[in-house]
Design a protein around this nucleic acid. Structure first.
Lengths: 132, 132
DNA sequence: GTTGTTGCAAAGAATTTGCAGTCTA
DNA sequence: TAGACTGCAAATTCTTTGCAACAAC
């Protein structure tokens, strides 16, 4: 057991704006995109700060991080859900899917502890599929 | 429709060795690890070449690529299966799980085409869970 | 006034790429 | 011998980090 040293966080304009930008974004933006949107509110904000704040909001459970093509994207929806990624237009869409209880149970019976589950479906969205 | 220009591939020592290394690896090695193992057979092989060959074997269906922590890893098992990733020791383990037909059907009814499905389970493996 | 935060720029890590020389077919 | 492939090193891309100035509390 190591002592948990907690330093008291401060509220800054930057944190409020980055959080708000993610809240208002339903397109799973990258850090760069969050940065661009945040700049509209606070032109002096820096990309490094955006990265730092995003990286802090995730473990606090305020936003979710999903990784697509080795790149982080951020999602205001923290409840359990999954994603569909269109290989053509790159659109990322939320997907509801039942949890795979059978598989989880089997792993747990082996002594495993499951903390996170991530499903990704890749393919073509309706529009791209129609375009063929 | 664009013409598919195919240039005839050649067989080289490097390709054979990289393929063989992945075939013999059951620990989901990174490109760097494949490189180290390949060097034991062919000390002059370069990392760039390993990357190029791995990137070519994947679409050919000869090996599979899985991405963990934004890093590519390679798997000789090409049949449909998923992965468990231990957050503590980093071990990656194969997981069999039934395909989520219900979710796929729902997406397909919306006009989506599903080409790939990827499930990842994160947590602690039996050993790390026991150590607490 | 402390000390957590920021902006900036430099550093990192993983991967890709241009090129000239090499080797396969 | 044509041109696919390789080794090398430089370039890219995304992300993290060190540091001095700044700003919450």
């Amino acid at each position: 057991m190591k002592t948990i040293e907690r330093k008291k966080k401060r509220n800054t304009k930057q944190k409020a704006i980055v959080f708000q930008v993610v809240q208002d974004s339903h397109d799973h933006p990258t850090a760069e995109t969050v940065y661009e949107r945040a700049k509209r509110e606070l032109p002096t904000i820096s990309l490094g700060t955006v990265y730092r704040i995003l990286k802090e909001l995730v473990p606090e459970g305020k936003i979710r991080e999903i990784i697509v093509n080795k790149q982080s994207r951020f999602d205001p929806k923290t409840e359990f859900h999954h994603h569909f990624i269109c290989k053509k237009c790159g659109k990322i869409e939320d997907v509801k899917t039942p949890l795979c209880r059978y598989t989880c149970k089997k792993l747990e019976q082996k002594g495993y502890i499951i903390e996170e589950i991530e499903y990704k479906f890749y393919g073509l969205c309706d529009k791209c599929a129609a375009e063929n």
